[in-house]
Amino acid sequence: MKHYEVTKHAVDRTVERLGIKREHAKGHLLNLMQTAYYVGQQSNANGRITKIFDHINSRTRLLVNDSAIVTVYPMADPLDATSNELPDEMKTALRRKANAMIRRIKRERRALNVQLAEKNLEIAQLELNRAKARSNKVIASIDEKISVLKSEHGELASKLSELTEKEKGVAAYV
């Protein structure tokens, strides 16, 4: 776990914007940072790079310079932002569809994690066989199999990261 400093300004904004008591504000922010998602970065007024983290469950955005939490904002609920344009039935349907997508993505992620673990197991078994082998021909054959499995492993890992990003995108709007 990375250690973050909390500035006085961040504590003040937590009290003001999130309604957390001052004595609990620092601990609250540190807890949020443990499960917050990195969204991106921006330049602040001084030209320094500020990292942006979103805690989706609590709908909180945190801005971090180096390892110091600088300020905190409540995130607007995207479906409520369009409250004048969409009827409540439509919002409910959108939320249901988004939640169904999140469940499907989580199932796919679990299946990919199992496949990744199985590939790791196959690679480890082949590496063990390679260590025991004495013939150069057998070692070369095992190396080919390992390289094929590692490329498959890389493809599965990239699919897993795509699903994770997709889930973050959908979760941000529910």
Rank of each mutant, 00 (worst) to 15 (best):
K2L: 03
N46T: 14
A171P: 05
A131V: 11
M101S: 10
R110I: 15
M90I: 14
K119H: 15
T92L: 12
R134W: 06
A140E: 11
V174H: 08
A124Q: 11
P78T: 10
K168Q: 06
T35C: 04
L128K: 14
Y173E: 13
S58M: 07
I56V: 11
R103T: 03
K168S: 00
A157S: 12
S161F: 06
G47S: 07
D88C: 04
G27L: 11
K51D: 03
K166H: 07
A93P: 09
K159H: 14
K106Y: 00
A111M: 13
L121W: 13
K8S: 13
Y38W: 08
A117F: 04
R61D: 06
N99V: 09
H55P: 02
R48A: 13
V170P: 02
E155L: 08
N129Q: 11
T71P: 05
L79H: 01
V70N: 01
N65Y: 12
S43I: 10
I139Q: 05
N129Y: 08
D80S: 04
I105Q: 07
A76G: 07
K132N: 12
R109P: 07
E144M: 08
A98P: 04
E122D: 15
R107K: 13
G40L: 09
L94V: 14
P87G: 07
G169C: 04
M101W: 01
K26G: 08
A25W: 04
E152S: 11
T82F: 11
A131D: 10
K132G: 15
Y73N: 10
M101E: 13
E85Q: 11
L126Y: 06
D77C: 05
A117S: 08
A25N: 13
V114E: 09
E23M: 09
Y38H: 00
Q42A: 12
K137C: 13
V11K: 00
K106E: 12
H24W: 03
L149I: 02
S151K: 05
P74Q: 11
I105M: 11
A172W: 03
L63D: 02
L30M: 14
A124T: 09
E167P: 02
V114M: 01
R13F: 10
G154V: 09
I105T: 01
L86S: 10
L32R: 01
S161T: 12
T92C: 13
K159M: 13
N44Y: 00
Y38M: 01
Q115T: 09
S158Q: 15
L79Y: 01
A133M: 04
S43K: 14
L30Y: 08
E122H: 15
K21A: 12
K106H: 03
Y4M: 05
R130Y: 06
I123K: 04
M33L: 09
